[in-house]
Design a protein around this nucleic acid. Structure first.
Lengths: 107, 107
DNA sequence: TTGACATGTGACTTTTTGGTCACTTATCAT
DNA sequence: ATGATAAGTGACCAAAAAGTCACATGTCAA
């Protein structure tokens, strides 16, 4: 059996799919053709990736005529967070994460 | 090139490794042998999984005589969160995630 | 110091995943 | 209608990951 969260984690495991999420985080409502244009991969590869993201619920889509618009859904990401970070430790962990980011910016 | 975050996402992609994180979230400082005992897999399989988790920084270890103790490090998880959830939307998303969890509990 | 215990390594096989391609379907504008 | 545009399907190949095994190392206790 393939559980719900399994789809999410598997979807996130690929760098191309994470890149697609990054692009949609930046601005969503994009089409397959638009997303494809900036990747060194055929349309079919990108389509497969988008399908996995959609099946995982990380991306939701809406049809508009002959094109399909893609939107980022961050809820599954939050659920990953909540699985291993309880609200009592959230502040500390968040502070550490910020510290790490800042150190890396100046490095 | 294999980036830092790539190791984290790949590590999280496997159900056995997520299970190991769950066990360590429950209580950490466990040994390989202890973690192995509850899995239907040889010691070698579990060892490989733990090594990937450690390389990803999701688990940190400390040697204690002939045994190796494993601890959960939640910081990389928080960094995943911060990648796609900005602090302005964090509240909404968190609320939606809680709602989803509650609905599933009673279902 | 010897036997038992806890962890580690490298080679190997099987399964899963990523990517491409030929071909198809649906929608729009002229 | 028809040519152009956007998205979809199933088969296929190559690359990567999961898991096991024979063998090896380091540590403890009697």
């Amino acid at each position: 059996m393939k559980t719900d969260d399994d789809l999410v984690f598997r979807a996130l495991a690929d760098p191309t799919r994470r890149h697609l999420l990054d692009r949609l985080y930046e601005r969503d409502g994009r089409t397959l053709t638009e997303l494809e244009s900036e990747l060194e991969m055929t349309r079919f590869g990108v389509m497969k990736h988008l399908r996995l993201l959609e099946e995982a619920g990380l991306v939701v889509t809406r049809r508009e005529g002959r094109q399909k618009l893609h939107y980022l859904n961050p809820v599954p990401i939050r659920l990953i967070h909540d699985r291993w970070i309880d609200k009592y430790r959230e502040r500390q962990v968040s502070a550490l994460a910020n510290l790490k980011s800042e150190l890396e910016e100046t490095a």
